[in-house]
């Protein structure tokens, strides 16, 4: 009895050790790249450079200076809009890939969604610029067709930023959606029709509830990516894109105000988490259920 229990606890502790070893890279990654920098950021943002000691003045600056919080608000609203747009575009695509086609063409289509991401984000964004600038492909095309008299500037508008955001986030919505829709057995949809359902309420009562975890995780990823995106808003939106990450960049690089930049970084983290949390609350989802 004694022997068996001691070996049992021995093997259990061995299992524990193995688990820790397996988790070590993840823990290291979290510690080195996420937790440590953020602790550093936090301490920076709270320290007073002139007199030493602690201060909340850098956080106060965010709320007192309308430019800052308005920029954040604008960034958040645009990101939410981009997320919604991405979902609306990606859902039919994902549904088509997962449910409407069978066999080889399914894999090919899925790969086609992936191919744009083979190219670096910078190059892709420049691609958009080549298409959209005043002397770009679309502008000259319009002129050639006689639809425009002079060059049309399609860059540096909110719509262009939105386009870029949706484009660069599409894959991160399609992949979770395809995988959840794939796991929905066709017989559920057929059972829905068999019991008298039409396209609309089968979508609403059977397909969307099933795809909810995919929708939620896709939305969280796309929202966070859009909010934290720097390249796309700056390149496609130009100087006046007013993206919050740009403010952080300015504080760190242009103004050398690391304390203010750190405060913004921490605020970005907190406020975006708050928005995600609110979103989950409003839609009645839980984070663990989505990820599990």
């Amino acid at each position: 009895m004694l022997v068996s229990s001691s070996t049992a606890s021995g093997s259990r502790s061995r299992i524990k050790l193995g688990m820790w070893l397996l988790l070590a890279p993840l823990c290291l990654w979290l510690l080195l790249l996420i937790i440590l920098p953020h602790i550093e950021l936090l301490s920076f943002s709270l320290s007073d450079p002139d007199e030493g000691g602690l201060t909340l003045s850098f956080y106060g600056e965010f709320f007192n200076e309308p430019l800052y919080w308005r920029t954040f608000l604008r960034t958040a609203i645009m990101s939410i809009l981009a997320t919604a747009l991405t979902l609306v575009i990606a859902f039919p695509v994902a549904f088509f890939i997962a449910k409407m086609i069978k066999g080889r063409s399914k894999g090919i289509l899925f790969a086609m969604c992936l191919i744009p991401f083979w190219v670096s984000e910078l190059v892709r964004t420049f691609g958009w610029m080549i298409l959209l600038r005043e002397s770009g492909v679309i502008s000259s095309g319009l002129q050639w067709l006689g639809l425009a008299d002079s060059g049309v500037e399609l860059l540096y508008t909110d719509a262009t930023i939105m386009l870029g955001l949706v484009y660069s986030a599409m894959l991160f919505m399609v992949v979770p959606l395809v995988s959840t829709l794939d796991s929905l057995d066709d017989s559920y949809i057929e059972a829905g029709y068999d019991l008298g359902g039409n396209n609309w309420n089968i979508m609403r009562e059977i397909i969307i509830p099933h795809a909810t975890p995919g929708i939620v995780s896709g939305c969280i990823i796309v929202f966070m990516l859009s909010l934290g995106n720097y390249l796309t808003p700056v390149l496609l939106g130009g100087k006046d894109s007013l993206w919050f990450t740009e403010q952080i960049y300015t504080q760190f690089i242009t103004r050398f105000n690391w304390e203010q930049g750190s405060a913004f970084g921490i605020l970005l983290l907190l406020l975006s988490s708050l928005i995600v949390w609110l979103g989950l609350k409003v839609t009645g989802q839980s984070f663990t259920k989505t990820m599990g």
């Binding site: 057995d185 017989s187 559920y188 057929e190 059972a191 829905g192 029709y193 068999d194 019991l195 008298g196 359902g197 039409n198 009562e205 059977i206 509830p209 099933h210």
Partner: peptide, 21 residues
């Protein structure tokens, strides 16, 4: 007549009870 209008119902091989309800 499409399947949702036929006076026929079907019990599927794996039942297909909706897990979300």
């Amino acid at each position: 007549v499409p399947p949702n209008k036929r006076p026929i119902n079907m019990v599927f091989q794996h039942l297909a009870l909706f897990p979300t309800m």
